[in-house]
């Protein structure tokens, strides 16, 4: 079986995988990082969004072997090691931007990539950026508010 080596949340990791193993399967099943979720099988829902080499991607639509040597950031690597929430995570909490929590990791990872591209996103821009992140609980209202607030906190 192929071997894949990569850096996940700043730590070196390697594992034996099948060629057909997806990055999300590597993360969840081999590395025990179950914060990245799988909500669909057609690359629509975005529950699996992580950053690969600094960009948000859908970890359900990339093979683990394609990530050889890559730097991967998952939701588990977003807060400080002491547990202090990232301003974006904190904004989701303060604005009730999550209910069941299942889409939340993908939402936060997408939001962080948005802020990289657009430090002060507006309501409509956030909604358009979230085209690939589905939430069934919140109606997005509070997610949009959270991201606005998170971006503002990150600018400080």
């Amino acid at each position: 079986m192929p071997q894949v080596s990569l850096t996940v949340n700043g730590k070196k990791a390697s594992a034996e995988v099948e060629s057909r193993t997806l990055l999300v399967q590597l993360l969840r099943e081999k590395l025990g990082l179950t914060g990245t979720h799988v909500g669909c099988d057609t690359s629509q829902c975005g529950a699996c969004v992580v950053h690969v080499n600094g960009k948000s991607i859908k970890s359900c639509t990339i093979l683990a072997v394609q990530c050889e040597g890559a730097e991967v950031l998952t939701i588990e690597g977003v807060a400080k090691p002491d547990g202090t929430l990232h301003p974006m995570q904190n904004a989701f909490r303060e604005n009730h931007g999550l209910q069941c929590g299942f889409c939340t990791p993908g939402m936060v990872m997408s939001a962080l990539d948005l802020v990289k591209n657009n430090p002060a996103p507006k309501d409509r821009e956030i909604r358009e950026w979230l085209e690939g992140n589905l939430c069934r609980c919140t109606g997005y209202h509070n997610i949009v508010k959270s991201i606005e607030a998170g971006a503002a906190a990150m600018r400080k």
Binding site: S43, G46, V49, K55, S56, I57, K58, T61, I62, S110, D113, L114, W129, L130, E131, G132, N133
Partner: peptide, 9 residues
């Protein structure tokens, strides 16, 4: 095209 994560790949 698609969404941001798709456009990144």
């Amino acid at each position: 095209i698609g969404d941001p994560a798709v456009r990144n790949r």
